[in-house]
Amino acid sequence: MYDTIGIWVGAFFTLAIYSFLYKENPVYRLAEHLVVGISLGYTMVLIYNTVILPKLLEPLFAGNHWILIIPGLLGLLYITRFIPSIAWLSRYPIAFIMGTGMGIGFPLTMKAYVLRQLEAAMVPLYESGMPWYEVFGNIVMIFGTLAALIYFFFSKPHKGLFFGTGSKIGIWVIMLGFGATFGFTVMGRISLLIGRIQYLLGDWLHLIE
């Protein structure tokens, strides 16, 4: 019974959202507002159950983790954002989270985004037994990366053999990349629709398995 009512309610709201394709209407607006309230309400419950209760209140009331009062009070300073005269106090927790986050992220970001990528861009063009399309692919990959980097380098005018030709090749490579991304984006969007059709035809109407 619970599931059946749930699926009918879900189907109603699914169709309510699709009604927007024909015309904007009050049921769509209702659904649009509900989703904001529910998602934030859900997050509130989650934060209370997973952080505030087990990581702050319980240890504090157990009496052996008084030090946790510091992050607790620091977090509470966010409330001052709504009191104009002392709103500047809300910068303290933001500063704590941001500063430390930036520091922690720095060496790891350097590794993940830069060092590993540079290392991986230096591959042998040819190894014995490699088919021609892989050899050609490696050439495209290595010189394509360089050319695309030249295209994004705006400190020098894109003229001459190195910067001019380089940036021209670069934009071609980038366009191939963006084309692939567009193709995948279409695929992704259709997949999301497929999910809903499966819900309507399968879970709700039982027309498909």
Binding site: R116, Q117, A120, M141, T181, F184, V186, G188, R189, S191
Partner: peptide, 17 residues
């Protein structure tokens, strides 16, 4: 990952990350 993002992460595959 979703289709929209998938093409962005091919470098991670080739780098072995």
């Amino acid at each position: 990952v979703t289709g929209v993002m998938a093409t962005d992460y091919f470098p991670y595959i080739q780098s072995g990350q």
